[in-house]
Design a protein around this nucleic acid. Structure first.
Length: 308
DNA sequence: TAGGCGTGGCG
DNA sequence: TCGCCAAGCCT
């Protein structure tokens, strides 16, 4: 059910129930056996490594993040190193990860960490949330994964696992609902280390087993109690999920413009940028948007470059 | 709150 | 082929 809020079933397993504790054990045990060895999960990654990975992983698959993450951490091992760079270098090093405003925001977060937190990634959820590009999910993820704190971590993977296992729906609602937040809060284990393990484990279960298109229920540690399976794995019958149109949109034009500027070492004349898209009105709108977003810096003589 | 915001792989 | 999907955030 993408668009209708699936009701929490009566007797939903809170943390303090036997069923809740059983779920924790099953999923965390599965995680300890099957978790991927990802660089940002190693102790040497530190809070900065966790934060960089979380920015890069927003709407972006792990396999595409891995090489860029390694480059970034080698080049900018501490927030101060990135803060000392120009934002344009961050955008350039972002490469083709997509959503390049994330690079700008991560750079801005590094500057804020340097200015407000003495160069150390803050430990408090509220302080994290105040950083550019850090929303509810990323703040909870950094606090949980980097600092072992107890926070509900509600990403697309966890929402799907909960929708299936607990609400009996194939998909979670389109937008995160209050019911989902309450469920995540109620299910959170009491002690910090277990809560942090639960967060990582439920995410990994959604990423590896309880996937969107073809869940592998035979590998799932909680298949026996999964509400969706027990209901016969009914297909989603509500309105379709909002599509991500791309071809012919401003986003595509922005991507083409920025690709040229990323590769350029010198300011790029407007005439060169004009070649990336045939339609002048949309082309101008896209370029204006990049400038107003701070991704592109206009120079005298109708030339453009990444921001200094 | 609905929609904008990149990119590429996969079924 | 082409629509769906991938650890969201911001306005």
């Amino acid at each position: 059910m993408r668009d209708s809020a699936a009701p929490v079933p009566a007797g939903a397993p809170g943390e303090n129930t036997a069923r809740g504790r059983a779920l924790h054990g099953l999923v965390i045990d599965w995680f300890q056996e099957h978790a991927r060895d990802l660089p940002w999960r190693r102790p040497e990654a530190g809070a900065w490594g966790v934060m960089v990975s979380e920015f890069m992983l927003q709407q972006t698959p792990v396999n595409r993040v891995l090489p860029v993450y390694q480059e970034w951490l080698a080049r900018w091992p501490r927030p101060a190193d990135l803060a000392a760079e120009s934002p344009g270098e961050a955008v350039r090093a972002w490469g083709r990860l997509g959503y390049p405003r994330r690079a700008l925001r991560l750079h801005g977060a590094a500057v804020a960490i340097q200015e407000r937190h003495g160069g150390e990634v803050p430990t408090e959820h509220a302080q994290l949330l105040a950083l550019p590009g850090v929303g509810e999910y990323t703040a909870a993820a950094v606090a949980s994964f980097a600092y072992g704190q107890r926070h509900p971590v509600l990403d697309t993977n966890v929402r799907r696992v909960f929708a299936r296992a607990l609400s009996g729906s194939q998909y979670p609602p389109n937008a995160t609902t209050a019911a989902e937040r309450r469920l995540a809060r109620e299910l959170l284990p009491d002690d910090e280390p277990t809560a942090a393990a639960w967060a990582a484990a439920t995410m990994e279960l959604g990423a590896l087993v309880c996937t969107a298109r073809s869940p592998e229920c035979v590998r799932c540690p909680i298949a026996a109690s999964c509400a969706w399976r027990l209901a016969g794995a009914p297909a989603h019958d509500g309105p379709p999920r909002r599509g991500q149109t791309y071809a012919g949109t401003d986003r595509q034009v922005r991507g083409k413009l920025l690709a040229v500027l990323r590769e350029a070492t010198e300011p790029v004349p407007q005439a060169v940028l004009d070649r990336v898209w045939h339609e002048p009105v949309q082309r101008a709108r896209a370029l204006d948007g990049l400038v107003s977003d701070g991704l592109v810096e206009p120079l005298a003589g109708r030339r453009y470059r990444l921001p200094r």
